[in-house]
């Protein structure tokens, strides 16, 4: 999909039938960055200090600070009071205040995307497109035989695009599950026309057909959202407009 990013409403409400996808520009003015840095927890501030380059530190502060601001609108809580907990593979969730809100985020270069739902497991991935000479080798190693066969029939340009489309979809599913790359072999897709359909999901109670899989493109790259509930309306918001 080509998302139409709109200004969010003044009051953010999210129902169980809706998924909010946010796009955030992480290249922000120094004053704004200074403010966002005041929102971070001690652990986040320490992590920010470990980056060697200002660029990476600034992106991290912008991403974490904005995430806190964004979630605070849903949670009716101040940004600094929000506490995060982390799953076995590092998937963050809101630990405080108590909430059914779920979220997942991804960033690539100066863009962050964040998916938010009520109660549903959700994952999002974003990858900037990079020229990779051995794309077929990667596909052979990490994709299922039928997926590799489908990609190998394409011309070189389409192989790159299709590889990243499939990769972001798989990564979004793995992020929704919180299982990390160890679960990669248990996720399989097929193409139905130009749409990706999830056909196999190992060690999972929700049937593959129940999952929402939605790819999207940005000038910066390619992304995908995955959610265990497939009949949601997806609203796309631009942060800070």
């Amino acid at each position: 999909m080509q998302p139409v990013w709109v200004k969010p409403p003044q009051i953010l409400n999210i129902s169980q039938r809706t998924l909010h996808l946010w796009r955030v520009n992480l290249a922000i003015a120094p004053d704004d960055l200074a403010h966002l840095s005041t929102l971070l927890s001690d652990e986040e501030a320490q992590r920010a200090q470990r980056f060697r380059f200002d660029r990476d530190r600034h992106r991290f502060i912008a991403a974490r600070g904005t995430l806190r601001q964004l979630l605070s609108h849903y949670l009716q809580s101040s940004a600094t009071q929000i506490q995060f907990a982390y799953g076995a593979h590092g998937k963050p969730e809101v630990a405080y205040p108590k909430t059914d809100l779920t979220f997942n985020l991804a960033h690539s270069q100066n863009t962050m995307v964040c998916a938010v739902t009520q109660q549903h497991r959700v994952g999002v991935d974003l990858e900037f497109l990079r020229e990779t000479s051995d794309i077929l080798d990667l596909a052979r190693r990490f994709f299922q035989p039928a997926e590799f066969a489908a990609i190998s029939q394409l011309d070189e340009t389409e192989q790159q695009q299709t590889f990243f489309r499939l990769w972001t979809a798989k990564e979004a599913v793995l992020k929704a599950l919180g299982s990390g790359l160890a679960g990669l072999a248990g996720v399989e897709f097929r193409w139905v026309g130009d749409q990706l359909e999830l056909t196999r999901l190992e060690q999972e109670t929700v049937a593959p057909s129940k999952w929402l899989i939605q790819g999207f493109t940005l000038p910066e790259g390619m992304g995908a959202i995955a959610c265990e509930q497939n009949d949601l309306d997806v609203d796309c918001f631009e942060w800070g407009q």
């Binding site: 080798d137 990667l138 190693r141 990390g180 160890a182 679960g183 990669l184 072999a185």
Partner: peptide
């Protein structure tokens, strides 16, 4: 990270199954 795993395989001859990535 996938490229890193491939690099380890090529440098050390160690094939790492995906289930071990975690």
């Amino acid at each position: 990270f996938l490229n890193f795993m491939i690099g380890i395989n090529e440098s050390f001859g160690v094939e790492i199954p995906e289930t071990d990535y975690g």
